[in-house]
């Protein structure tokens, strides 16, 4: 199974969509958005706030891209081919999940490093560690949603669905422009999105607060919903080959 994970990571690293949406865009947008001064607070606070936003955006990009890869694999007959190797289906799925979990790391790390090195963000080691863990673990619901789309839809439409979902969740969830600048109706909507809950956990921690119980509860519900969706997609894909 380690061989499968290594194999999938090689493929991920060579995937243009992954490099653009999971790595380059979040870093570039972080640099641009910090200068726009949309985030609340002084310059340092804004740099922290936007760093978390863009790291979350990068996490979403990589997580959804992993799901699109599943659709591509299915279209190429690759999942069927894997069934003719000694790998078990559980190993294949676990391998894909691990690949996804590893795949979100570079984008998050690149944005956080840019924050520390370019925008001179300073946080206590404990807070750094906490936001790294939260940003990383928080991608799981999005990975599941992406996988669900990947299993349920075919090649191009899965990639398109994942890209659109990723962009809508990023924008409405306040990862690009903070929700404080939204009209009130949109802001009310934003606060129910999983992407807003995901980033809120780290926003709170970065500014010294505890993660909110509401965000944790909401993200857990989304985790269950997307998990069920991924299982539904997987079963459906199994029936149709």
């Amino acid at each position: 199974m380690l061989g499968y994970i290594r194999f999938e990571l090689i493929r991920t690293a060579r995937d243009g969509g992954y490099v653009v949406f999971g790595l380059i865009m979040p870093v570039v947008m972080y640099l641009v958005f910090t200068d726009l001064g949309l985030a609340p607070g002084d310059e340092h606070d804004a740099a922290i706030y936007t760093m978390v936003s863009m790291a979350a955006y990068g996490g979403l990009g990589a997580a959804f891209n992993n799901g699109s890869g599943i659709a591509e694999d299915r279209a190429a007959g690759w999942l069927r081919r894997l069934r003719l190797t000694p790998l078990t289906p559980a190993q294949v799925i676990a391998g894909k999940v691990v690949t996804g979990a590893v795949g979100v790391v570079p984008g998050i790390a690149a944005v956080l490093l840019t924050g520390a090195l370019v925008n001179h963000v300073t946080l206590t080691p404990g807070r750094w560690l906490a936001i790294v863990v939260l940003l990383w673990a928080g991608t799981i619901p999005f990975s599941l949603l992406g996988l669900g789309n990947g299993y349920r839809l075919t090649g191009q439409s899965a990639a398109m669905a994942n890209l659109m979902t990723m962009l809508v969740l990023s924008i409405v969830g306040g990862l690009w422009v903070p929700v404080s600048g939204f009209p009130s109706w949109l802001r009310a909507l934003a606060e129910w999105t999983p992407s807003n809950g995901y980033a809120s956990l780290s926003w709170h921690v970065a500014f010294g607060a505890a993660p909110g119980a509401r965000e944790i509860a909401m993200l857990t519900v989304w985790l269950v919903v997307f998990g069920l969706y991924a299982m539904y997609g997987y079963r459906r894909a199994g029936r149709t080959g």
């Binding site: 493929r11 995937d15 591509e72 190429a76 007959g77 690759w78 069927r80 081919r81 003719l84």
Partner: peptide, 9 residues
């Protein structure tokens, strides 16, 4: 198999 089974990249 008759079709597929090669993967890109």
């Amino acid at each position: 198999p008759q079709e597929g089974g090669l993967i890109g990249r």
